[in-house]
Computed example of a mutant assay.
Amino acid sequence: MSRALDRERGGDYTFDDVSVVMGTYNEEAAIGTVLDDVARVTDGRAEVVCVDGSSDGTPEIARERGARVVQQRPRGYGVAVAAALASATRPVVVTTDCDDTYPMERLPDFLDAINDGYDVVSGDRLYHGARAMPPVNRLGNRAFALLASVLAGRRLHDVTTGMRAYRRAVVDGIEWTENTGLSAELLIRPVARGYAVREIPIEYAERAGETKLDPLSGGAAIAKSIVTVGVEERARRRTR
C-alpha cells in the first residue's frame, strides 16, 4: 500500500513523511553530531534541510551527511528558520537547532504525538530544570512563557524552544512575521488560532560552540515579538 493511500485510510505518518529543518550559522563544532543523530534515530529516512549563512565549514559538513543545504546571506534566526520551513517537502516538519542542545532521540515521541492528532508538538526544556542553560537565559525563558501565557489565554511553559513538530497545514496556513522572536511566534499563533498544541518535556544539553544571541538585546527583541504577536492575535479574534 502506498503511503498516500495509507494516509487516506487513517494510517500513521512514518519518518518517510518527516522533514527535519534548521537554520545554520557557523556551527561546524556541532552540525555533524546533530545530523548523525537525526540519521541514526530516523534510520536515514527523514529529509534534512539546512538554510545556511555560514562562513565556516558548516555547509560542507551538512552536505557530506546528506542534508539539502539552501544558502542565503545571514539575515537572522527567524529568516533562516522561516526559509527552512518553506523548503521542507514532507507533511510533518520538525524544527531543531544545530548546536547539539536538543535530544534527537525524542523524535519518535514527537512523531507519535502528531499521529495522536496534535497539530504542533513543542519541546519543553524548562520542565526538567534546563540546568545546562545559563541562569539568566533560564529566568528569561520563564518570563517569556509567563508573558505569552497571559496574551494567549493558555498556560505555556517554554515558548522559545527550537525543537517542535508541525503538521504541514500549520506551517503553510500562517504568515510568519518575526525574526529574533520567531520561535515564540511559531507557538503563540497556532495556540491562538485553535490548533491542537501539546508541550512535552525534553532534556536540554550544553551547547557545542558559541552562542550567537546577545542575552540582553536578544531578550528584548523576543519580548517585543511576543507582545506584538499576542496583541495581533487578540485583535484577529475580535474581528472574526
Results as ranks from 00 to 15, higher is better:
Ala67Gly: 02
Ala220Lys: 14
Asp100Trp: 02
Met1Leu: 01
Gly162Lys: 01
Gly153Thr: 07
Ala80Gly: 09
Glu185His: 03
Val20Gly: 12
Gly76Glu: 05
Leu35Phe: 00
Arg189Lys: 04
Asp172Leu: 08
Ser183Pro: 13
Met163Trp: 02
Gly129Arg: 09
Leu151Gln: 11
Val227Phe: 08
Asp99Tyr: 09
Asp36Ile: 05
Val51Ala: 08
Gly10Ser: 06
Tyr166Pro: 02
Arg198His: 11
Ala39His: 12
Asp172Val: 08
Ala113Cys: 09
Asp116Glu: 08
Phe144Tyr: 15
Leu35Asp: 02
Gly11Ser: 07
Arg238Asp: 14
Cys98Phe: 02
Arg189His: 03
Glu199His: 15
Val93Leu: 01
Pro190Phe: 00
Thr14Asn: 07
Gly209Arg: 13
Glu232Phe: 09
Arg131Met: 05
Arg63Thr: 12
Leu216Ile: 09
Ser2Lys: 04
Arg106Glu: 15
Asn115Ser: 05
Ile188Tyr: 04
Val150Lys: 14
Met1Gln: 15
Arg65Thr: 02
Glu105His: 15
Asp124Cys: 07
Asp124Asn: 15
Lys224Glu: 10
Val69Gln: 00
Tyr118His: 15
Arg65Lys: 07
Thr239Met: 00
Gly162Val: 04
Met163Asp: 03
Ser54Pro: 03
Ala39Tyr: 04
Asn141Glu: 05
Glu8Thr: 15
Gly66Phe: 02
Thr161Phe: 05
Ile31Gly: 05
Arg63Lys: 15
Ala132Val: 01
Ser2Thr: 10
Leu151Lys: 11
Ala235Tyr: 04
Val18Ala: 00
Val21Thr: 12
Asp99Ala: 05
Arg40Ala: 10
Leu35Lys: 12
Asp112Cys: 10
Thr101Gly: 07
Asp43Ala: 07
Arg45Cys: 02
Pro108Thr: 11
Val49Asp: 07
Thr89His: 08
Thr96Cys: 05
Val49Leu: 05
Ser122Phe: 06
Asn26Pro: 14
Arg207Pro: 02
Gly123Asp: 10
Arg167Trp: 09
Met22Gly: 04
Pro201Met: 08
Ala192Glu: 06
Val18Gly: 04
Gly44Thr: 04
Arg154Pro: 07
Ala113Leu: 14
Asp16Gln: 13
Glu8Val: 14
Ala113Asp: 13
Arg234Thr: 09
Pro201Leu: 02
Leu111Pro: 13
Asp109Thr: 13
Glu27Cys: 03
Arg65Asn: 01
Ala67Leu: 01
Glu175Tyr: 09
Ala208Glu: 11
Glu175Ser: 12
Gly44Asn: 03
Asp100Ile: 00
Ala165Leu: 03
Val70Tyr: 02
Ala223Asp: 06
Gly230His: 03
Leu139Thr: 13
Ala86Ser: 06
Gly162Ser: 02
Gly219Tyr: 11
Ala84Val: 12
Gly162Glu: 00
Thr180Asp: 08
Val41Met: 04
Arg193Phe: 00
Leu147Lys: 07
Thr160Ser: 09
Val94Leu: 03
Glu8Gln: 12
Gln72Pro: 09
Tyr25Arg: 14
Asp100His: 08
Val171Asp: 14
